[in-house]
């Protein structure tokens, strides 16, 4: 996974360094920024909102390939990395590719609800969990956010 991220970051780096990711009218580059919004804690049994924000934080147009419909995913793991819940677990995703152009500052927001159930539909219980957001881009690449800590309180 990190290999793909590094590949993407590397390519992005090249494009930024060369100033090559732009339209003909605007020489400034587009910059893809993917951020995750997760509450730091929640009561056990409550539905929790996860939000992935995909934004062009650069000064020029950004063309980004979105892989799949929907192109995003969320994963909850234990502190030691064991997967507890994945939004797409056991689900079918339509395997289409979309080429999306974002203007400077333009963003997409993807929100899902987690009912604190595991992949096997069991309540996960109180504890500390890590949440990550994933954006599928040009296959097989994915952009993965930093993991954020989520405390489930009794």
């Amino acid at each position: 996974m990190s290999r793909y991220l590094f590949s993407l970051v590397g390519l992005w780096g090249i494009l930024l360094v060369t100033g090559c990711f732009h339209d003909n009218k605007n020489t400034a580059p587009g910059v893809l920024t993917v951020t995750l919004d997760v509450p730091s804690e929640a009561r056990a049994g409550k539905t929790i909102l996860f939000q992935l924000k995909v934004q062009n934080t650069g000064q020029g147009l950004l063309s980004v390939t979105l892989g799949g419909r929907p192109p995003y995913d969320f994963v909850v793991t234990t502190q030691d990395g064991a997967e507890v819940w994945r939004w797409s677990y056991g689900q079918a995703i339509q395997e289409i590719l979309e080429i999306k152009t974002l203007k400077p500052g333009e963003h997409l927001v993807y929100t899902v609800e987690w009912d604190q159930q595991s992949n096997s539909r069991q309540p996960v219980g109180p504890g500390e969990y890590m949440v990550r957001g994933l954006l599928n881009v040009d296959p097989p690449h994915k952009v993965e956010t930093e993991a954020k800590l989520l405390r489930i309180l009794p």
Partner: peptide
């Protein structure tokens, strides 16, 4: 089926 696929293969 168990074959591999990815986005764009639709």
């Amino acid at each position: 089926g168990s074959y591999n696929s990815n986005s764009g293969d639709s």
